[in-house]
């Protein structure tokens, strides 16, 4: 009885998570689908999509956005967490507080605040990709922060630094050869998570810049109005990207613990 219930639950979850992707995959290669199974199969929809310049441009913008967010996150987080862990552990609480902020001010609310703040001088950033990059960095911060912070916590860098120094390493050597290699998997994992969050971001993009700087999810919403099969192909690509990045990030962590907030 227990055994049966357990199997049924896990099977149901598996079906629930895979069925939508499989259906989209089938729809993206179907000629016409009005009965139980598609009438025939074709690669026409994929070919159309891959020949479409708008698709490539939106994918390029999404990649640019995601890489910028990762670069900015790592540029800020690694030195900050390094000095906080090493010299100023008292201010760790402030950082923690700042990473909880997007919980109370999610994408929609942040967009409203940013628009009213940056629509005029002195900083007229509204409707520019720069504001979008900054905003998406803020929203994906909790993911990246947690991964990088866990890496620093697990490494116990203070002890590591003392050990390296007592062995005669100077500071630059300690940082380059001892501390950075130890926290690298965690930093990479945080980067991958931030990339994934930025890749799928829609609310901020649509509200801050919309079709002026079309990213992949915004393009998909436009495309879905006229070409359901092409939109299904983008669904498949998005799933592959999110799942691939997600499993990659998980595999970079030594502990199997999964934290959300």
């Amino acid at each position: 009885m227990t055994q049966l219930l357990r199997r049924a639950l896990l099977l149901a979850l598996g079906l629930y998570l895979f069925l939508p992707i499989l259906a989209s995959l089938a729809y993206s290669v179907a000629t016409s689908w009005t009965a139980l199974l598609p009438e025939g199969y074709t690669l026409k929809h994929w070919a159309n999509l891959l020949e479409n310049q708008r698709f490539w441009l939106s994918l390029g913008r999404t990649a640019l956005l995601s890489f910028s967010v990762v670069a900015l996150s790592i540029f800020f987080l690694v030195p900050t967490l390094f000095v906080v862990r090493m010299y100023y552990p008292n201010v760790a609480g402030v950082l923690e507080f700042l990473t909880l902020w997007p919980f109370v001010f999610p994408g929609v609310i942040l967009a409203v605040g940013l628009i009213s703040l940056y629509s005029g001088p002195p900083l007229q950033l509204a409707q520019t990709p720069f504001l979008l990059i900054a905003a998406v960095t803020v929203i994906s911060l909790p993911y990246a922060y947690r991964a990088v912070d866990n890496a620093f916590a697990a490494a116990d860098i203070k002890t590591l630094a003392e050990a390296a120094r007592s062995l005669g390493a100077d500071d630059a050597k300690t940082l380059a050869w001892v501390i950075l290699p130890t926290v690298l998997p965690g930093v990479l994992s945080g980067g991958v998570l931030a990339f994934s969050a930025a890749f799928g971001e829609f609310a901020l993009t649509q509200l801050l810049i919309g079709t002026l700087w079309e990213t992949l999810p915004v393009y998909q919403v436009q495309l879905a109005r006229t070409d359901g099969n092409g939109s299904a192909a983008i669904t498949v690509l998005s799933f592959l990207a999110a799942w691939g990045l997600g499993f990659w990030a998980l595999s970079l962590r030594k502990d199997a613990k999964v934290s959300v907030i």
């Binding site: 896990l10 979850l13 598996g14 998570l17 939508p20 992707i21 259906a23 989209s24 729809y27 994934s196 969050a197 799928g200 971001e201 829609f202 999810p217 998909q220 919403v221 879905a224 359901g228 939109s231 299904a232 983008i234 669904t235 998005s238 799933f239 999110a242 799942w243 997600g246 499993f247 998980l250 199997a256 999964v258 959300v260």
Partner: peptide
């Protein structure tokens, strides 16, 4: 299952909506 759940828990937005429409 744990890995799958952790990844799927973060998946939302247009691709998810259109997958369910299909």
């Amino acid at each position: 299952t744990t890995g799958l759940s952790a990844v799927a828990a973060n998946f939302a937005g247009p691709p998810l909506a259109f997958a369910f429409i299909v």
